[in-house]
Design a protein around this nucleic acid. Structure first.
Lengths: 205, 205
DNA sequence: ACCTGAACACCGTTCAAGT
DNA sequence: ACCTGAACACCGTTCAAGT
């Protein structure tokens, strides 16, 4: 049995989340899934919040890499948004893990840096570029949180499914039609729609 | 001492959140702030999740009211977005309270219904209208969560402030400039910026 | 350097029993 | 109908003590 180190704790945490979701993640359960006393975890990680911060940083590793390459400003901002979504989707509950983070981890900052840079390069003046980059971040986070909540519904235990009361389609006809179109149009298209709206007129003429 | 009822529990919960933030909200602490044994709470509310759901619904009460009035489609969608933000801001951590809700409460559904309706009325074809309405919701949620996280930083206890490591402005010059422009441009303008971008080309020509 | 075991101060939820 | 008190099965965090 190899000795535990910080990387193994992070890997174990992701594996646990993959199986049970973030809400079920507990220092004690994580420890026992690693075959170790729960006090031990605090040797490798300061506390649960530090673990969450580390997971968030882990999630965004590499998202901002190689952005200096060929593509022009607008295309790069678009690509960064897609990369952010992919990173969040790469682990169950990824968006909520990141949302639970307060401090700015290096990779989060690197993403923001690249996003603002891409906006600037596409000719958007200084103050607007910042607002554009942040707006994209808000949109991606909001989108993926909802997207992954949908996944959780599917995998959820009976307790949670049971909580989902059927909605009154008589009172909410637009919602009823809306759910249908959401089911019919691919996730990627849904995502691209709002993203395009957000960037049209800013980064693309 | 008037007897406790469900409404008093909700009011007490908001008051507690106003003072200590959602993270500190506990069935036991809420009970003692209401001068009651913690077991008592479960007579008025099924469990903590049900309490959160009720708070979320409370938060959105009235946001979708009177949307049939004068204004045309595009203006109404814009106004709905502003009303949603106002509602979320009306209580500390409002956005996070709503984000913690999974089931669709009546008022959340009513907002979605009105938002889709406004998009439809502005001439956006059926499938797009739904995507536009949802995109707006994602953006507002993302924006206000970040906005209120900023408030919490200010009010935070020393523990939390301490956690905020100073960021390396040499490595992240765009972020450095970005923080300055965020400080210099009013919140309302920041909010309006992304919102306009989102709606331009969709609901406004 | 890494891990155990036990302790401390908390949680949410349930439920008999009281009024 | 509403509330108490006590119990149950959990939490995160700390820290002496072991190896």
């Amino acid at each position: 049995m190899a000795r535990l180190d910080r990387a193994a704790v992070l890997a174990g945490a992701w594996q646990f989340i993959e199986g049970h979701g973030v809400d079920a993640l507990t220092m004690r359960k994580l420890a026992s899934s690693l075959g170790v006393n729960h006090g031990t975890l605090y040797w490798h990680v300061e506390n649960k919040q530090a673990l969450t911060d580390a997971l968030a940083d882990d999630l965004l590793a590499g998202v901002a890499d190689d952005t200096d390459s060929g593509a022009s400003g607008p295309d790069r901002l678009l690509e960064l948004a897609h990369r952010l979504r992919s990173a969040l989707l790469s682990h169950r509950d990824g968006a909520r893990v990141l949302a639970g983070t307060f401090v700015r981890q290096p990779n989060t900052l690197a993403f923001g840096e690249a996003a603002i840079g891409a906006a600037l390069e596409s000719g958007v003046p200084e103050p607007e570029a910042v607002l554009a980059a942040f707006s994209v971040q808000y949109y991606v986070m909001g989108f993926v949180i909802e997207e992954q909540a949908g996944y959780d519904l599917v995998r959820a235990d009976s307790t949670r499914v049971q909580r989902e009361t059927t909605i009154d389609f008589e009172r909410f006809p637009n919602i009823a039609a809306g759910l249908k179109t959401l089911r019919d149009t691919p996730r990627d298209n849904q995502f691209a729609y709002g993203l395009t709206r957000l960037l049209t007129g800013t980064c693309r003429s």
